[in-house]
Design a binder for these strands. Structure first.
Length: 867
RNA sequence: GCGCGGUUAGCUCAGUGGUAGAGCACUGCCUUGACACGGCAGGGGUCACAGGUUCGAACCCUGUAUCGCGCACCA
């Protein structure tokens, strides 16, 4: 296959190979297989999603695990699919409807709107799946699932009914997080706290029973005054305690200034503001609780869309909450009771999806008391599930410790409908039936749908049929971002324990978050998120995968830099060309057995380093340190295999041939076969193309080629010495400003016998005309390069300016003197000599000896030059 | 406020007790029969700061600064 192109061209390779792979059926997981099972369920991306670098990282890791497991002889299931993503998808379709037809979902009605969403899903829902294929993901595509597949949807309903029957699901009127844009309740996890700059407004009210006594109140939300039903002070606050039980006149709405009581409540912080709190039970969680304790009335002054309603009074009704704030301040000013306003920064909860402040709102919702929380905690604590990195265990634990009931109902249309029925017009709890099918005529189903995560939390097991479960459940590993540890990971563990009696996965690998070069999160609005498909087009899927994985240390955030992907591409090209070089030497032997040859030292050494690389790689895999795997392979391929081994092998290949050439070829074929297999999980395309092109598989895919194991070759120290010696000789050449293409006659006074046998190789590596073995330093002007394998002499006749060279050497002598004094200082320290381990002291002694030798060499060189 | 993570070369990052590393960028030489997406050589770092432990600290301990992320918050 000497017709390999000069550079690797991924574009022409990837689609062809991917099609071959999927058609070959290799990704189809067989539950009846005698092989041990290995399984992963994909974290289902939103159907609305397009591939991001986060997905690339996450799915490449899963693909690496799946591919390696296949090579190791496991029956692999990587189960793909997408999530219906309630709010996100509904919003996308609503936006489209508005844009194209100027209609809202209410204009078209629930049924027709859902038809539109399904149409949208059929049309666009496959985008991200196709993008994953471009990346090379080896999923079992025939098993692709969607969280609203019929069977899956049924399971979601069954689980609801079951949890209801167990008394874990209940309906209640509670304070919830309300998104005025999406007009639905949200779970606590969907609320993102953000610091906001605003004002703290102070106003004062006169105590009715004590004319002349004023209470000053501080608030950030004057627009809720109309909903106030009390003031609260701390009963232990000496300033105000005596006023408890008395009243003030609520200043707004102006047309109905009712008296409200002053209550005493421990929740009031004396030190904040004035120590007097206005209590708005309908619009603040803490106030609601105070209201409950004091049986205060609740006045809800807001509409679901965040505008104020009639209860807010004239001038407020119909205003948006933020407009109302301005208006309320105006009114307070008019009343002459606004005492001051101070700039103030506080934290406000924002809706994750709509990115607007969430409104605490009292509403009737469905809640879940989580099942199996103690077991879920224990599963991680006892090591049934291992987290990588393990620091996330603490976060997980803390959340479970402080777990709150989950608000699972959403006032949306797109999602799993709540399987609860009531007789029309009678929502009484006694007349409520929780079941999947309608109880009959006159019964209407709850109009709400379930939180998307209430379906995703069943993903690990409800995506599998009974046979598949038996073979592949619990899954081996879950790969996901730490941002959904509560949303998904923790909940899946609880659902798994409740419905399968087992943990859903044995290990969880948390990836880092990909940021831009400034450390900011990737986001559409910032425009700092490169399109992975562009990167694939430019650098190849393998280049992207390898480049990204190499800089993604376990669980650490990553600053993305396109240069890293360039390096990934370059690496693939390097590998390609190393193989191309091999192909030029004639046909290769897929079964090459270097043990059957008398191996040159450098070959044996390279094979020893390959063994070590395999050991390091396997070790890194045990704790999912993928960047270390990538780096180890990069270093071996580029440094040991290409720079050292191939360069040395050239002397054999371009020489006379014979057994030495055969031995080197065998070592090379043996190594390439392993390199390709080791790299395959990271760079599937280029390795398969080379595997086929070089004839290793004889038509069979590399994907099932056995994972390599060490072959028992040791690393040879004399080789390390030889390369260090060559480096020293080349440094000397460079220091004398001799162009590297100038072929010189070197001389070498050898100190080790084996060197004689490697002179041709050494000459090739030095680009020397020849290396002449001498027994004494030459007469003519030469640079002297002492090394562990002997002393090189570089003829300088006519090549250097003697004076300039002496000056340079003297400069170097000064540096060496400095090093000598450092080491001697160390050795003169009695504490060091007495207490350090003997080998450390010896190391310093030999270091000292090395520097002294270096110094003598330099002295000799100067003496030699000056003649 | 509590918890977690980061701070190492111009840049992106490795490196958990024994002479500070890689890639990119930079400088010089080289298009030598795999690769210029390349080769060889080189310059460049008081490892955020201050204490401590140790013969020895980038690494362990304590504290500080700073950036980021969670969690909980006071109107």
């Amino acid at each position: 296959m000497s017709e390999l192109t000069k550079a690797y061209e991924p574009a022409v390779v990837e689609d062809r190979l991917y099609q071959w792979w999927t058609e070959s059926g290799i990704y189809a997981a067989n539950p009846a297989s005698p092989k041990p099972g290995f399984s992963i369920v994909i974290p289902p991306p939103n159907v609305t999603g397009v591939l991001t670098l986060g997905h690339v990282l996450n799915n490449t890791i899963q693909d690496i695990l799946a591919r390696r497991a296949r090579q190791q002889g496991f029956e692999v299931l990587w189960l793909p699919g997408t999530d219906h993503a309630g709010i996100a998808t509904q919003t996308v379709v609503e936006r489209q409807l508005k844009k194209e037809k100027k209609l809202t979902r209410h204009d078209v009605g629930r049924e027709d709107f859902l038809k539109l969403v399904w149409e949208w899903k059929e049309k666009h829902g496959g985008i991200i799946i196709n993008q994953l294929k471009k990346l090379g993901c080896s999923c079992d595509w025939a098993r692709e699932r969607f969280t609203m597949d019929e069977a899956y949807a049924r399971k979601v309903q069954e689980v609801f009914v079951d949890l209801y029957a167990k008394g874990l699901i209940y309906r209640g009127k509670r304070m919830v997080n309300w998104c005025p844009v999406s007009r639905t309740a949200l779970s606590d996890e969907e609320v993102i706290p953000k610091p906001q700059k605003g004002f703290l407004y102070y106003f004062q009210l006169e105590v009715i029973e004590e004319p002349g006594t004023f209470l000053e109140i501080a608030t950030t939300r004057p627009e809720t005054i109309m909903g106030d039903t009390a003031l609260a002070v701390n009963p232990n606050d000496p300033r105000y305690a005596r006023l408890i039980g008395k009243h003030v006149l609520r200043p707004l709405p102006t047309e109905e200034r009712s008296p409200i009581p002053i209550v005493g409540d421990d929740a009031v912080d004396f030190d904040f503001g004035t120590g007097v709190l206005k209590v708005t039970p309908a619009h603040d969680k803490a106030d609601y609780e105070i209201g409950q304790r004091h049986s205060l009335p609740i006045i809800d002054i807001m509409n679901p869309d965040g505008t104020l309603n009639d209860l807010a009074g004239d001038g407020f009704a119909g205003l948006d909450r933020f407009e109302a704030r301005v208006e309320a301040v105006e009114r307070l000013k008019e009343l002459g009771i606004l005492t001051r306003e101070e700039p103030y920064e506080n934290t406000v909860g924002f809706s994750e999806r709509a990115d607007v402040p969430v409104e605490p709102r009292l509403s009737e919702q469905w809640f879940l008391k989580y099942p199996k929380t103690a077991e879920a905690k224990a599963a991680v604590k006892d090591g049934l599930i291992r987290f990588f990195p393990d620091r996330w265990e603490k976060v997980y634990d803390h959340w479970l410790e402080n777990i709150q009931d989950w608000c699972i109902s959403r006032q949306l249309w797109w999602g799993h409908r709540i399987p609860v029925w009531t007789i029309e017009g009678n929502t009484d709890a006694a007349n409520l039936k929780c079941q999947i099918e309608s109880p009959g005529e006159g019964w209407v189903q709850d109009s709400d749908v379930l939180d998307t995560w209430f379906s995703s939390w069943l993903w690990a097991h409800e995506t599998m049929d009974a046979k598949t479960l038996a073979k592949f459940y619990p899954t081996s590993v879950l790969v996901t971002g730490p941002d959904i540890i509560f949303f998904w990971v923790a909940r899946m563990i609880m659902a798994g324990l409740e419905y399968t009696g087992e943990v859903p996965f044995r290990e969880v690998v948390f990836t880092g978050i990909i940021r831009d070069k400034q450390g900011r999160k990737m986001s559409k609005s910032l425009g700092n998120s490169p399109d992975p498909l562009d990167l694939i087009a430019k650098f190849g899927a393998d280049g992207l995968r390898f480049g990204l994985l190499r800089i993604a240390p376990q669980g650490q955030d990553i600053r993305f830099d396109e240069n890293q992907i360039v390096e990934g591409r370059n690496f693939c090209n390097k590998l390609w060309n190393a193989c191309r070089f091999r192909a030029m030497q004639g046909p290769l032997d897929p079964q090459a057995s270097p043990r059957d040859h008398d191996l040159p030292l450098f070959c044996a050494d390279m094979l020893g380093r390959l063994d070590e690389t395999i050991r390091n790689v396997d070790e890194a895999y045990t704790s999912h340190r993928f960047s270390e795997v990538a780096q180890a392979l990069y270093d071996f391929v580029w440094g040991d295999f290409c720079d050292r081994f191939i360069e040395t092998a050239k002397a054999d290949f371009f020489g006379e041939g014979g057994p030495r050439r055969e031995a080197t070829l065998a070592a090379m074929d043996f190594a390439i076969s392993r390199i390709l297999r080791l790299l395959h999980p990271f760079t599937p395309f280029v390795t398969e193309e080379l595997w086929q092109g070089l004839g290793f598989g004889q038509g069979a895919t590399i994907q099932l080629a056995e994972w390599p194991t060490p072959a028992g070759f040791p690393i040879l120290p004399e080789c390390e010495n030889a390369f260090a010696a060559l480096s020293a000789a080349r440094t000397a050449r460079s220091n004398y400003n001799i162009p590297s293409n100038q072929k010189l006659n070197w001389q070498l006074q050898v100190s080790q016998d084996w060197v004689i046998g490697e002179l041709t190789a050494l000459a090739s590596l030095l680009n020397a005309k020849e290396i002449e073995v001498v027994t004494a330093p030459p007469e003519e002007l030469s640079a002297t390069v002492p090394t562990t394998i002997g002393t090189f002499y570089l003829p300088l006749g006519g090549l250097v300016d003697v004076e300039a060279e002496c000056t340079r050497l003297e400069g170097e002598i000064n540096k060496v003197d400095l090093e000598i004094s450092k080491v001697r200082g160390k050795l003169a320290s009695t504490t060091f000599v007495q207490n350090a381990p003997a080998e450390v002291v010896d190391e310093h002694r030999s270091r000292e000896a090395g520097w002294i030798a270096r110094r003598e060499t330099l002295d000799a060189a100067v003496r030699g030059l000056r003649g």
